[in-house]
Design a protein around this nucleic acid. Structure first.
Lengths: 120, 120
DNA sequence: AGCAACATTAGAGTATAGTGTATGGTTGAC
DNA sequence: GTCAACCATACACTATACTCTAATGTTGCT
């Protein structure tokens, strides 16, 4: 599929998709046989990747971190051990985020009590 | 206390503290009696606020959102009802973040399985 | 052939959250 | 009084993650 279709499927603008491509997160390929244009073609895996990117972004991972995870998943660039290490690392950071959110929740609940009891 | 002490207590640079002050998150006061300088003085509440700011930032709240929460806590700018509404709103967004993190955790665990079983 | 809708690259601009650098005044210990 | 350590303001610069604009080429429908 071309970028417009990919855009519609993922809800990301072609601009943003190209930005992710330039950032090394995804990769379309040009058809060597067709010489009249230089259109990029994307497959279903790219749709999956972009969905993952959106999710990962919303939990606060940076593009760099997301790139690492995608590489750990799709690329042959790392050994099995390296891949697992990267992914475990991200799992740890998720646990950390979780802990921080629970703390923040407590803090805000305290604020609410203070408001209710006119302590502020 | 002056900014340097505040900086040491909170681990934030004077620069960053001034940035937060300019952003309306905290407020020092100048001593009217002393005319020879224009030094700002900060109290313990400001220490608390800065600690809250650091925590809130690490869970992904923006300065704007943090400002709203601080206002909901310390300022007379809102009614009780408005304050509770703001805080409830932030609680909901924390629940949302938590859900997303749990999803992401599942996703990464799936990646790990794929790696272990050579499915990628 | 004409034209809308699509594609590409390249470079500039925006928002957020700082950080750096310069300039100049103040305080306090010696 | 001088000097280091501190304070303030202001403007520039950085990094991240887009978003916009412009220029230009391609495709497909009529």
């Amino acid at each position: 599929m071309l970028i417009n279709e990919l855009s519609k499927k993922t809800g990301l603008s072609p601009h943003t998709i190209r930005f992710y491509e330039k950032s090394g997160l995804i990769e379309g390929k040009q058809n060597e046989a067709v010489k009249s244009n230089n259109y990029f073609h994307y497959d279903e895996v790219t749709v999956e990747k972009l969905e993952f990117i959106s999710d990962a972004k919303s939990v606060g991972f940076t593009i760099k971190e997301i790139g690492q995870m995608i590489d750990a998943w799709y690329k042959q660039k790392y050994t099995k051990e390296q891949k697992l290490e990267i992914l475990d690392d991200k799992l740890i950071s998720l646990e950390q985020k979780m802990k921080e959110i629970k703390e923040m929740k407590k803090q805000i609940l305290q604020f609410k009590e203070d408001v209710v009891n006119d302590r502020c």
